[in-house]
Each structure stands twice: as C-alpha cells, then as structure tokens.
Amino acid sequence: MNLNLKIWRQKSNSDKGKIVDYPISNVSEHMSFLEMLDVLNEGLISKGEEPVAFDHDCREGICGMCSLYINGEAHGPDRGVTTCQLHMRKFKDGDTIYIEPFRATALPVIKDLIVDRSSFDRIQQAGGFVSVNTSGNTQDANAIPIRKENADLAFDAATCIGCAACVATCKNASAMLYVSAKVSQFALLPQGEVEAKERVINMVNKMDEEGFGNCTNTGACEVECPKGISLDNIARMNREFLSANIKK
C-alpha cells in the first residue's frame, strides 16, 4: 500500500520542531509499524538525509522503550499492543498517518520522536521497592502463603511496562495509572505492607514534583494502556494515600 506520513521532526530539545511530509510506497500489510519506519529510514539514508529518530528495543511489546503518538492515539489504533506490535494491516492504502512523540511537560522531547522519561525512574526511586537486602538469608519463599486472587491482582498491576502511554493520552498528563500500578502491586502483597504508608506518600509527592497532572477519572489511560492496567489501581492508590495520611 501507499501512505502519506506526516512525522514530527525536531533536531534537539532546544529546536522548535515541525511536521514534515514523507510519502511512502510498497508497504506490506504484514510489516510492523516500526519496520515500516525502518524502510522509510533506509530510503532517507540512501538519499543522504538524516533518518527519523525513534525509541525501540525488544520489538515484542515488553521492554516499554517504543512510544509514538499515531493519528492522535498512543501506540496507534490497535488495542492492547505497543507500537512495535502494531501491524500495517490496521491501515489501508492511501491513508495519511500523523506520527508524533508522546507529549507532556514531564516528558521533554530529546530528538524527533524520542522523549526523556527519566521522571518515571525518579518516581520509582522514591519508593517503588521493598527494603530487603540480597543477603541470601531471606525466609523460604513458601513461608507466607498468599491468596491466589491477590497474587494474580498484584501480577496484573506489575505487568506495567513504563512506556508512558497513559501520560501521553491523559488530557492532564497525569501519571496516576503508572504510579498506582506499582503502589498496588506492593499493597496487595504481605512483603510490601511494612513500608506501604511511606511508599504511597513518597511516590505521589514525587509524581507531583515532576510536573505530572492530576487525575480527573476520564479513564483514557486505561483504554490506551498496552498492558491493560486497570483503573481499579488508581482507586486502590487513592485509598492507600488517604489512609496513609490519616495515620500519619
């Protein structure tokens, strides 16, 4: 198929940036979206032009490195996938496709479609862990049975890949879904209970400090999340946050 790509080009963070048109032909429906960009880039290189810079690594939907805002949707029109798993069969011949970076104050553009997500790491550093040393003297793994239901819910929350689609999608650029996934994972497990209070307060404070917006329950994040992280986690985090502040 033939497509008309409109891609955000920005030399560096200080550059203003603009949309540039790139027509592309002979795109196979079996290609992934990023393979289509590979083909575009090979063409640009052969003409001596600079290829479009975009983040990607595992290309199987788990590392969370790829991003892209495609026709106004984080990770494009398909559901439950990252951009690297989006296939061109979701588009049709003659389509115009807008490709932009994830946009938020807390996710500044580095170059073209690449953004800086280090704010996400800093939120985890504020409390996204259980303080246990690697001494080799921890108790036996089966010493504390955990209800299967809770273990499964903790797992579902823990599958967040930290891609920031939730932030890019949210009209408030809120990171509540991302933060609540980690808070929930630990809140549902006995191992996380000991530090639960400090964890939720510190992570939420850090989130605010980094410039992410607040949650107004539109639910857009849940729709666009490639891993199906549930809004229930935000409710759980609000409960944890409230009770932590009351107990303070």
Partner: peptide, 22 residues
Amino acid sequence: ANIIDQCVAQGVPFARDYGGLL
C-alpha cells in the same frame, strides 16, 4: 533455591496455586 526466596521477598508476583503456595 535462594534466588526464589530473594525474589519473593522483593515482591515478585510469581504464579501461585489456590492454597497460596508457589
């Protein structure tokens, strides 16, 4: 064996059966 103990202590959500064990 120690690795499993360590990871569970860190809050790694391994699959469990209905009795709550790994």
